[in-house]
Amino acid sequence: MSAPPKSTKRPVKLGCKSVWKIFGDNPSEFLNQTQNPSDEQLAASGMIGAVRDANLDILEGEIFVIMGLSGSGKSTLVRCMTRLIEPTAGEILFEGQDLLKADEKELIEYRRHKMGMVFQHFALLPHLSVLGNVAFPLEIQGISLAEREKRALEVIELVGLKGRENYFPSELSGGQQQRVGIARSLCVEPEIWFLDEPFSALDPLIRREMQDEFLRLQSMLKKTIVFITHDFDEAIRLADRIAIMKDGKIIQIGAPEELVLNPADDYVAEFTGNIPRAKVLSVRAVMANATAKEFGGKVSADTKIETLAAKIIGSKKPFSVHDGSDIVGQISANKVFSVLAGQE
C-alpha cells in the first residue's frame, strides 16, 4: 500500500455531486418539495433515504474505501455510481462526463470496457466452469472463443487458480470462488473497479489472505478502486482514503491517519478509538523538527510507526525523516514508544 504523495494531485476518475437515492413512492417529487429532508421528514412520509447528498471524488489509481455499518447505504451508493440503481438526484461524473445522461447503449459500452465489479456473494454463474465464468464478460462482448479463453486463462493464473479452469463454482471454497469473481471482473481490464464487500462472506483467516492478495494485485495493476466494507480494520489496511457513511450520509472523507487524528464526530471516533494508532499513524504525523546533529538512521515520512518500531528499538539517537531526498524532521525511539503505548 503506497499512499499517494501529498504533493502530486491526481486527476479525478469518478465524482459524485449531491447524489441522492430515496426509496419510496414517487421519490423525486418528494425530493423536489422538501429540499434536503431531515430524518423526521423522511420517516413521516414513509421514505427511506438510502443515499443522502453524497459528494466525493475518486482519484485515479487510488483505493477508495466506503465504510459504514450494514444498512448505511454503501451498496446503494456504489450502485448509483454504476447506475445499477438510478439515483433520485445528483450527478455521477465519469472522467468529467455525466453518466446519468448516457443512453442505454453508451452505458453498456461503459460497463463492458471501463467498469468491473465484484460482489459480496460472488454471483458466479452455476452452470459455467471457472473458465466459462471468467471468460463470460468477453463472451458478452462477442469476442471469439479462442481469444477469450486465452485471456481468461491469463487472469486465472494471475489470481492463483491455475489448474482449476474446469472446476465448477460448487466445487470451490468461498475464497476460491471470490478469486474467480475477481478474475472475472479483471478480465476486461476495467479502468475502475468496484468491490462491494468482497471479503465479508469469508472466514477471518481467509479474509486476511484475500486482502493481501488484493494488495498484491493492486501493486501490479494500479487500478482505480472503490472498495466497500463494514469492517474498519479492513478499511484501514487497504485504503488510501476512506469515506465513512451513516444513515445514507457521508460523515467524513480522509486518509486513515486523518480519521484517526481528527475524527469528525463521536461516531467516527467510535471506530477509530479501537484501532492501534501505531498501525495508522505515519512518521510524518508525529515527527519533531529536525534539530539533532547526528541521526541513528533514516526513515521515510510515510512509514507507519508500527513498521519503524522494530528498527528504532535500541537506537539512542533519533532517526531523520525524509520526504524524497529532503530531510523534513526527526523522530526518537521514545516518541515511537509513546505512540505504541497509546499515549499519543
Binding site: E109, R111, A123, I140
Partner: peptide, 8 residues
C-alpha cells in the same frame, strides 16, 4: 446485477 455490469 453482475449480468448488467458486464454490459449485457
Amino acid at each position: 446485477e453482475f449480468g448488467r455490469m458486464v454490459g449485457s
